[in-house]
């Protein structure tokens, strides 16, 4: 795959296969195209050439649009949380939008310790708290492919450990993670340098 933004070609000849239970850490300088690759996998950005293909557990090819809508989460810097609404309302919406029920919401609240935040307006949250809230939909509606942009960056040490455990549990359950990172992920992950 190659991806171009404006007149600049970010990367070309990229070939990546991610399998169930595998994590890939995308590294590279600022502006090298890590986020663009995640957005291309998510179908939000059209690659200049090449394509993204999804395969089911039996190896059969899936319809890319359906695979993205039903099996993919993208969580990035822009978390889509509305500052005027409460954390609880936004978690409810993001969970419902991604197809989760009340059980999913409860699971997310428990797994990410979101209970104390729910009544607060999103504008009152710190960037780390916002990120945890945005992670809520990963837990609320289980989907195999997680596309994460700098997942650990705003989190404190304790939350990083917690998040790392959630990510490892996801991989153990056969999930896939593609994450853009600057610091290496705190567990075994394949590293891929973009724009090298």
């Amino acid at each position: 795959m190659s991806v171009k933004r404006g007149e600049r070609r970010l990367f070309e000849g990229l070939d990546l296969l991610v399998q169930a239970g595998e994590a890939v850490a995308l590294t590279g300088a600022n502006g090298s195209g890590k986020t663009s690759l995640l957005r291309a996998i998510a179908g939000l950005l059209r690659p200049e050439s090449g394509a993204v293909a999804f395969h089911g557990p039996d190896g059969a090819p899936l319809d890319p649009d359906e695979a993205r809508a039903a099996a993919t989460h993208l969580v990035g810097h822009q978390d889509g949380l509305k500052s005027s609404r409460t954390a609880g309302e936004e978690l409810q919406f993001q969970a419902a939008w991604t197809g989760a029920g009340p059980d999913g919401v409860a699971a997310a609240i428990a797994a990410l310790a979101l209970k104390p935040l729910l009544e607060l307006e999103v504008r009152r949250l710190s960037s780390g708290q916002r990120r945890r809230l945005a992670f809520g939909r990963l837990i609320a509606s289980p989907r195999p492919l997680w596309l994460l942009d700098e997942p650990m960056a705003p989190l404190d040490a304790q939350r990083r450990t917690q998040m790392s455990e959630l990510m490892q549990a996801h991989l153990k359950g056969g999930g896939l993670i593609v994450a853009a990172v600057h610091d290496p992920l705190p567990f075994k992950a394949r590293s891929l340098e973009i724009g090298a």
Binding site: G76, Q78, G80
Partner: peptide, 14 residues
Amino acid sequence: DYEDGALDLLAMGP
């Protein structure tokens, strides 16, 4: 929604 990234979520939705 475009500025805060919610449009990404909406575009990938069900």
